[in-house]
Nucleic acid binder design. Structure first.
Lengths: 112, 112
DNA sequence: TTTATTTATCGTAATATTGCGATATAAAAA
DNA sequence: TTTTTATATCGCAATATTACGATAAATAAA
């Protein structure tokens, strides 16, 4: 059906999956990495940097804003985008906690 | 078009996005968390645990195996699944490196 | 006021994902 | 050998995602 059965999972599972899904596109990774590199820039700079059409970049920026990993402030006719430091740290912690949960045991083969 | 233009991004960007995309579904998060909890189990256990049909779970397991985050070993008529410790650590490092790349500067508002 | 600049939204086409019933496959058990 | 058990694959329907041209909206510049 193409529709995820989110009701059978916990809030935390759905949230982490949602965040991962937003990171699951190279254009959005590239946008975040460029924002990290230059601290902040306007949307048009990202269009030039990434090499996708303006509506496409706008759509990706919307997704990144939706989960709060970036913020945009209106500067006259353009919008200045940057990482949201607080939310970045929170998301980083969520992923860290997820990965740290696995502690490999001293065994050649875990599987059965 | 629904087709990602992966040729305009770097190998690393595509790889990280691919990994994030695989983590971007709550069923796959739930599968990984259950494997962490019980160390190893057969596919049927995951079908009972997660609450999706067997073919659906099989498909999710295939994706997780594709990126190497889990491994499956045949045990008679069933397959025993577990986290792949080495690849888990490698993927964990990739995400850590990505998140650590952002160092917030001492400023109330980063944006322009 | 008119024009340029910048971003967001709409509409649409192409492709991908999700989920599952039916069925194939393969090994164990009877 | 037949049956049972467990998993994978096929095929399909429903929905989601990606990309972009056209256009709207809103402010700045001329």
């Amino acid at each position: 059906m193409g529709v995820t059965k989110s009701d059978i999972f916990t809030e935390k599972q759905n949230h982490l999956a949602d965040l991962a899904k937003v990171l699951g596109h190279p254009a959005r990774i590239a946008i975040l990495q460029h924002l990290i590199k230059v601290n902040a820039c306007i949307g048009g700079d990202l269009v030039n940097e990434i090499g996708l059409a303006q509506p496409t970049i706008s759509q990706h920026l919307k997704e990144l804003k939706r989960v709060g990993i970036i913020q945009g402030t209106i500067e006259g006719t353009s919008v200045c985008y940057c990482i949201d430091p607080k939310n970045w740290a929170a998301i980083q912690t969520l992923f860290k906690t997820f990965f740290d949960d696995f502690k490999p045991i001293n065994q050649t083969d875990l599987c059965c």
